[in-house]
């Protein structure tokens, strides 16, 4: 009898859910791998890990990981995660969702979670468009880029995510591309150990949508672009860290912010203690 081989990482995956729904060349599988590697190496019990997402291709990622997972409504993963975390701070609550989900429809929530220094980790997979609905433009689409709703080129200025997050007081801010697998894994591990709000942007290819419209014909050609243009600079001036695909400016990656600031959960527990002790 031939026994089916079990991969050591299988316990972290819902193997019955594969094959996944993602396209060939999509960067999302790499993000899943990094998440799984990170939780397998950390000493946090598997039962304490919770994944929360909104809606989109990225938001399907929690459905493949063998942890408690919540696939919520479009844009609302962060307030949902906020409720979970406040009630049970023992949980390691990680939000993995798309750029559109977190910064367009859910933009209001992420800025407030960062401001509050809410004790959650947010991993934003930035593919510069709404992958799930067919590649429309959003707040992260670089100026000039073509998408299914910017056929003449995007005339809007785009968000520079690490710059926004750092300015709001997040405890941890990093950016990687789907090429930086080891760095991303380490970053997730480090962020999970931080108190307060942690943010990791992962630049990721979306060949059939953003790629197709912007001369990246397959996942590989966009990965080559990341390879040629990424510059590691942990001390970067974040105001200069916005992204375009002209090839004229570096794609700045790194761990930009690591700071200790009282977190929401710490402050709230202290508030409750004070209120309960009042005569």
């Amino acid at each position: 009898m031939i026994e089916e081989a079990i991969h050591p990482k299988d316990i972290y995956l819902r193997s019955d859910r594969f094959p996944h729904i993602w396209c060939p060349g999509c960067g999302l599988g790499i993000v899943l791998k990094s998440y799984v590697d990170a939780i397998s190496k950390l000493d946090i019990p598997l039962d304490h890990h919770v994944l929360v997402s909104g809606i989109g291709c990225t938001a399907r990622l929690p459905g493949y990981a063998n942890v408690d997972s919540y696939h919520t409504t479009h844009g609302r993963a962060i307030p949902f995660a906020t409720g979970l975390k406040i009630v049970n701070p023992e949980l390691q609550v990680t939000v993995i969702s798309g750029d559109g989900d977190l910064f367009n429809i859910g933009g209001n929530h992420i800025i407030h979670a960062a401001r509050r220094n809410m004790d959650i980790l947010v991993v934003c997979v930035n593919n510069f468009n709404y992958g799930m609905t067919g590649g429309q433009h959003g707040a992260t689409t670089p100026e000039g880029a073509r998408t299914s709703t910017t056929p003449y080129g995007n005339i809007e200025h785009s968000f520079n995510l690490p710059y926004i997050m750092a300015s709001l007081g997040a405890s941890y801010v990093a950016r990687w591309t789907s090429l930086h697998v080891r760095q991303l894994t380490k970053s997730i591990m480090k962020a999970m150990k931080m108190k307060g709000f942690s943010f990791i942007e992962v630049i990721s290819p979306c060949p059939p949508n953003f790629g197709k419209y912007n001369k990246f014909n397959d996942g590989l050609s966009q990965m080559e672009f990341f390879y040629e243009n990424s510059v590691l600079d942990n001390n970067a001036d974040l105001s200069e860290a916005y992204i375009d695909f002209s090839g004229k400016r570096p794609l700045i990656v790194g761990e930009f912010v690591q700071r200790i600031r009282p977190s929401y959960i710490e402050l709230e527990r202290d508030l409750i203690k004070r209120a309960m002790e009042e005569p």
Partner: peptide, 28 residues
Amino acid sequence: PQVGGHFIEMEDEIASMAAIVGASNAGA
């Protein structure tokens, strides 16, 4: 807070509603 419960003023009602669904899923 006097009874050991949690109160949070959210950024809008969409967030408020999502937060209570999350909180209930953590047992509250």
